[in-house]
């Protein structure tokens, strides 16, 4: 039944898009693909070693307009990439840290099992759902409008969206907690505060830290494109390389992103494994 519904949805999407003529692959997809792949298969960072140190740009008459040291140029570019990576990393980290703090009170209020007063519960749930349903990039645009271009907008954008995710995860891990130890604490006549801090919190904390790390991992990926809307970091270089059709540089950037993301995935996974 569900399967049929899914199949129907897929077919309907295909059919309507085809009817609207939105499924075309452009005029010369193969040539374009080949050209792009060819240019990207020569990442620009290779020029640090193999670049022409005396690259001359001439006009039609053969007059030398400009002489470039490609190796030095590329080294400068790579230093820029390094700085942008560092910025991206800082945006993701600070954004996640801020999100972890914001998510705490909302996550607690939105946990059904903690029995927060109804209005507060719905308020917290509403806030978390709203934050979560708006993409980081959209928050990026929003905050660039408020605090201007730069890393601050990026941090706020990451924090806003991740707070929604983390709050929801926190509420859920509290809800799925084994209730027996918590009831046992309650059974000693402990106050609500004692029940929470002695029964709930010790059990939830490692899960929460692990979730924060996971979201941090995620945000490092997400922040690489935040620069597209001017919120600082690597995305700025990405959009520059793409608009100038510098596919070699784009390749360099993508490789840098893959390396960074893989490295931090590994770090965060190792830490998370120890926690649980």
């Amino acid at each position: 039944m569900l399967l049929v519904a899914c199949a129907l949805l897929v077919l309907a999407s295909l059919w309507t898009l085809a009817a609207e003529d939105e499924l075309s692959l452009g005029r010369k997809p193969w040539q374009n693909l080949k050209k792009t792949v060819a240019e990207m298969s020569e990442p620009s960072f290779l020029r640090v070693w193999f670049g022409d140190t005396n690259s001359q740009m001439r006009d039609q008459d053969g007059k030398v307009l400009r002489v470039d040291d490609q190796q030095a140029n590329e080294r400068r570019y790579l230093a820029g990439v390094g700085r942008a990576l560092w910025t991206t990393l800082r945006i993701a980290t600070l954004g996640t840290a801020l999100a972890a703090l914001i998510a705490l009170p909302f996550g607690l209020l939105a946990a059904r099992t903690l029995n927060a007063p109804r209005p507060l519960f719905w308020f917290a749930k509403g806030v978390l759902d709203t934050l979560r349903s708006i993409h980081t990039l959209v928050f990026g645009l929003f905050f660039v409008g408020i605090v201007g271009l730069g890393a601050t907008a990026g941090i706020l954008a990451v924090a806003a969206h991740s707070a929604g995710t983390l709050g929801k995860l926190l509420a859920e891990s509290i809800e799925t907690l084994d209730t027996h130890p918590v009831d046992a604490v309650r059974a000693t006549g402990a106050t609500a505060g004692q029940v929470f801090f002695l029964g709930v919190w010790p059990a939830v904390l490692p899960q929460y830290v692990s979730q924060v790390l996971y979201v941090w991992e995620f945000n490092i990926r997400d922040s690489t494109i935040l620069g597209l809307v001017g919120a600082g970091g690597l995305g700025l270089l990405l959009s520059e390389a793409m608009s100038l059709f510098q596919w070699g540089r784009l390749a360099t950037l993508l490789i840098a992103i893959v390396l960074m993301v893989t490295a931090f995935d590994a770090v965060s996974r190792a830490v998370r494994k120890r926690l649980v």
């Binding site: 000693t188 006549g189 004692q194 801090f197 002695l198």
Partner: peptide, 15 residues
């Protein structure tokens, strides 16, 4: 935790 009710102070929240 067995003595929680005797010592309801918030200090016990942090053990």
């Amino acid at each position: 935790i067995g003595g929680a009710a005797r010592t309801p102070s918030w200090l016990t929240w942090f053990r």
